[in-house]
Design a protein around this nucleic acid. Sequence first.
DNA 1: CTCGACTCCTGTTAGC
DNA 2: TGCTAACAGGAGTCGA
Length: 274
Amino acid sequence: MGTEVFVRVVGYPRSVPELPEVESYRRLAESALLRTVTSISTPDPWFLKGGADSRALGRSLLGHRFVSARRIGKLLLLEIDSGPTLGIRFGMTGTLVVDGGAGVDRLLYAPRHDPAWDRFAVGFDDGGSLVVRDPRRLGGVSLDPDVSELGPDAASITGSELAGALRGSTAPLKARLLDQSRVAGIGNLIADELLWRAGLSPLRPAGSITPNELRRLQRHLGRTIRDLTARGGSHRGDLMDERRSGGRCPRDGTELTRSTVGGRTSWWCPGHQV
DNA sequence: CTCGACTCCTGTTAGC
DNA sequence: TGCTAACAGGAGTCGA
């Protein structure tokens, strides 16, 4: 290969690890199953959470194999053949890299691959590797992460579970949907896309959602996650390109409103989201 | 218990 | 053109 084609990535990196991204990491991680770990790299102590220091990780991983890759919300769980389970959170900018290929979005931060962004890695006896790459260090790895605080997974939540997650709450609807202890897996981009599709204002008190609206929300939640997963990421929503100052509703042309809800920037259509 | 505000982190970008 | 401050957001903590 003589010429390196240098593709400049324009704009803010848009592929934030929400449910679709982590699900694709999970599938990728399946290619790392049943391979014996012979080395680990933990260059960033900050990235090791819940007391999972280098020594504990080495003891749990060296000579062992991952036997299953599960996901709850945005948490990836790699079960080890014996002992604790490895938990991986990707924060805002994390990606999973197995055997040198990028996980979900090769363009995220590509082509720059600062080696310092590799916060955690295991090497296999066949020469391959599993690497967690996270420029902004908001992710982390842990052993036996506490999953009891996570709500039902957004991809498979039932209507009654969703109703229970919203019932009686005075918090804004979107804030409740972003609360991982209520529903696991919804991030800021999916929340905006979902509420736009369902025609619901992010500011509505969660407990004010009527049974009809709840059914609509439930239906659009499943569809939105399926759509975005099929399209390749949470940034592929119909609303995405308009999430900016001066952006207009793709449905009715109304200028979008920007609000801060649950501490997150929210773009929504005051015309049809009520 | 619930909920909002604040904090962590650092690459990117808007604005001077 | 170069610099700086604001911004992005998942998750944990804290206080009202």
